[in-house]
Write a protein that binds this DNA or RNA. Sequence first.
DNA 1: GAAATAGTGTCTTTTAGACAGTATTAG
DNA 2: CTAATACTGTCTAAAAGACACTATTTC
Lengths: 244, 244
Amino acid sequence: MVDETEAEFLRRYNIHDYDLPLVSVDLAIFTLRDQRLQVLLVERGAHPHKGRWALPGGFVDLKQDRELLDTARRKLQEKTGVRTPHLEQVVSVGSASRDPRGWSITILFMALIPPVSLQGGGAVDDVRWWPFADACALPLAFDHRELLLQARERLRNKTAYTLLPIHVLQPPFTLTRLQQAFEELLGEPLEKKSFRRRILSADVLEEVGEDLPEGGRGRPALLYRLRRGAEQHVFSRVVLADRL
Amino acid sequence: MVDETEAEFLRRYNIHDYDLPLVSVDLAIFTLRDQRLQVLLVERGAHPHKGRWALPGGFVDLKQDRELLDTARRKLQEKTGVRTPHLEQVVSVGSASRDPRGWSITILFMALIPPVSLQGGGAVDDVRWWPFADACALPLAFDHRELLLQARERLRNKTAYTLLPIHVLQPPFTLTRLQQAFEELLGEPLEKKSFRRRILSADVLEEVGEDLPEGGRGRPALLYRLRRGAEQHVFSRVVLADRL
DNA sequence: GAAATAGTGTCTTTTAGACAGTATTAG
DNA sequence: CTAATACTGTCTAAAAGACACTATTTC
């Protein structure tokens, strides 16, 4: 054993000799519907916490998933049908107490998608969009309320210095719509002129025509979409620096 | 089974019925020694990748650790003896291929500590500080080179809008020392006046006397330490906005 | 005095905040 | 015309960049 090779070591190695934590991936999937931030929840059809609303998620499938992001993408597509969203890792939380089945870890992801209607295809689980505040007021499963709040926090923070809110809109969009999305995700109103100057001078949007406003009344607005490669744009100053 | 209670479900539930990934916690422990960013590595004394240098880390101990942060704190104290460092989660990485023992996940933490000499107490493993660039040039175990680079990236980013570099200094320190720490972690020189204005006007430091410079020659410098509660200070503007 | 290090004065540049103004549409 | 919505002009304020300047020490 002293001079054992790595191959010999691996032949002897049995993963079942060790106590391992449970590992799941959970998703906070956000969108903007009716001008409000909404989050996708599923009603659990199985124990534990059967009947409670929870973030969509599940265990890593060691056969099917090659990496963590695959698990997240798979779950997102199962629930929403969306394939190319904004999807980013938020944090991992693990403790002996968060799941009654034992020591458990979850890797939390956050997804931003344009509003889609849900194809009720889900087997046992009931799935629906909840306005963010309503979701927080529910008695969520596990520690999903804290997870949801952490994702919300990340969303607010990054809204202050990136273009994240663009991903909850269906392009093309007007600058007014975009500003409303930023305001809803920040939870604060923004100055119109400052907002437009900031976005336009960053040169991250492409003009793609114009359109009358919703009500049919008023001056037509220019339509935009995100310029290719501009997803990663980072502003060097934060908006609303004193109010956040 | 249809109307099984949660208690009944949990009685039947056996964690060993499922395939679970391996879960480890790894640490990128940074400090500043001889004005250079250095990182702590251990030479692996066991398979796999025996003999290679690696980030310190290990498996979550389901008996001993109540949460992920406990595992990170335990590993940090084992290697450095440091108890109250800056310690933050960076990212989790998981895939089927990153560890020859099987599907494996690591939760990467980053620690910043003042320079300490290592009590060679480590059992089999050899432990030492490496200048960052040298560490990157080594053939590290597993995907630890990528992990190290991700931690470095986080460190550089946060140096541009927080006080992170303060944690690699032994207080009290002069503003010149602090600026050198910022510069080393950013990899870029900073303007003296801008730096001092930024730090002093944020009101995050406490004056605690003064001292002659290292060489004994030159005007004495004021000494500072971090004001209580100021660890979390966030600047609303990023430094070197155009060069990063 | 010179050399070395600490610290300041002040002008410019960038970009956000405020807010009143003009432009273009439907009816 | 009015109402509604889109968009602009322009002043102020805050903070970073640049860089020359002064201050205090040892020798």
